[in-house]
Every structure is written in structure tokens, then in C-alpha cells.
Amino acid sequence: MNRNALIALLLLANSAFGQRVADFTTAAAQAKTSKSDIVVFVHGSDWNRPGEVVAKIWNDPRFLSTVGSGVLLVDLDRKENPTDAEKAALKNNEAGNPPVRSLPAVALYDSEGRLVGTVSGTEELAAAGGLLAATKKLLATRRERDELWKSADGASAILKAGKLGQGLDRMNLGLGPKGIYKPILEQIRKADPDDKSGYIGKYTFSNEALVDLALKVAESKNYAEAETEFAKWDRNPRLSTTQRQELQAAKFALYQRWPEKKNEVRPVLEKMRDIDPKSELGQAAANYIELLFAPKKKKGDSAA
């Protein structure tokens, strides 16, 4: 057996059990060969005190064995006062520094170095059941995604587009940071150019664009143009709950400015609310109904 083959075997053997790797650059190179997932734990050991408990779990030898085989673990320590050596090491971690809002955080990258998901901050980690459960959930997401994408390989047209889209849905990342999953959208376009699956719409949907359209047509009084566009989106079965609510909000923006359609204002808010009354946007719609349509208190009415 030649030397290279021996190294490859060793890598394979290591990846079968998972291993801790010095930095993301090394992990990314190794993951490509061994098809491993990369779990990155981001914390700050010299300042992030709420992260200390989570770091203990991360550093426990049992963590690696519990998350399963074929996983590379990278510790990304965002110290306030790193040594020169630690600063140099951070450079090797730049590509694996996920866009997170709060530390500690855990992120999963696939073997191609694409971000699969993050759980950031103690509150999100607690809601996910802790670091271990959050990591396992991310790994499961990646596996489910890849299963769907694998089944897309053998499919064509709308079926292929559907499987690819469901894979994106699993991650709930849109097209990912810096559009890393745009190539998947391109595959969907190729398989289903007429967007019968609705996934092209889902992954190009922009609430801002729809609101801008409503405001623009209101200026030119060309309201019907927006209504036609909104109706097209209404027919898309793939829109998420939030997207459907945002679509109603854009309609609200249009009808508020369309004198002949003022009577549609309340129904679209009610529809937005009823799509998911407990959601943030459902509550916002309910609040707006209250704001606009609650009977005004007369002078002298006592406060409840």
C-alpha cells in the first residue's frame, strides 16, 4: 500500500468516528475527501460567560461520540484578547465563521462547505433543547435535505423541481448566505421552467418588491397592474405561511391607496390574521384591524 493510500485510509477511519479538527480550512479540505459534515461551535472563552456552560458540553469527550460518526468538529473561539498564534488560527477559520446574531452558536456546514443552518445565542440553543439536540437536529436536516436531493437525481420536470425545493425548505435558509444555493434554484428552473411546482416563485418571492409595486402603481393610479401580479402570487401553492401573510400585507398596501377598493382592506387583514393567528404577523394583522376598525371611545367613557 502506498503512502497516500494509507493516509486516505487513516482519514476515512478517523471520519468514521468523527474527530476534532484544528481549524475550518483543514476541516473543509478533509470534508471534501471524506464527505463529512462540519460542526462549528462559535464562542468566546475569555468573555462569553453564558457560553461557558455550553462550551463544557462541547468539550466533553462524549459530545463527539454522541453526535454520530462522520462529523468534524471545529472550535471557533472568538476571544477578545487572542495571542498571536490564536489570531493566526482565526484566519484559518474565516470561511467557517457563520453569520450569527449571538454567541454561543453552533453551525453546520456540509462536505462542500455550504452552510446548512445555525442556532445562535443561549435562548435559541435552549429552545432547541441544548447544544447536543441542536447539533443533532442540524445533522438530521442535512441528511433529509440530501435524501430529497438524491431522489431528485432520478426524477425529472416538476417532480425533480419539487424534491429540490423541498430540500431547500428543510434548511429554511432561503438561498443561503451570499446566494450559495442559487445553483439549486438554477436546477429547479431547468427542470421546471414554467414553475409548475411553485418553487421558483417561493425562492424568488420578495415582500419588499411587492410592497414597492403597490406604492408605485398607487402613484400612477394603475392599481390593476399590481392586483394582477398579486393574484399570480396567490395561485402559488408553495408559498410559506409567512410569505402568504406578507402577500396579504402587500395587498393591504395597495387597497389602502385604491379608493374603489377600500372595502377590501379589512378582509385582507383578516385573511392575513387567519392564515396563522398565533404567528407574529397574524398578531400584527389583528392589531392593525383593531387600530383601524375598533370603535373609537367617546369622551367620558371610563377606561376598562
Binding site: 406578507e246 400585507a249 402587500a250 398596501a253 389602502q256 407574529e280 400584527a284 394583522a285 392589531n287 387600530l291
Partner: peptide, 22 residues
């Protein structure tokens, strides 16, 4: 965002008004 998802401008009174629950 200059306008919220309802099309209300940040310069008006209703930009955050529907989100009093947050």
C-alpha cells in the same frame, strides 16, 4: 426598510404600530 410590510413609511405613525405585541 423605509416602508414596512404593510407599505407604511417609517416617517408615519403606523410603521411599528401593528407590532405592539413585540
Amino acid at each position: 426598510k423605509l416602508n414596512n410590510l404593510f407599505g407604511d413609511s417609517i416617517h408615519g405613525a403606523n410603521y411599528y404600530a401593528p407590532f405592539t405585541h413585540e
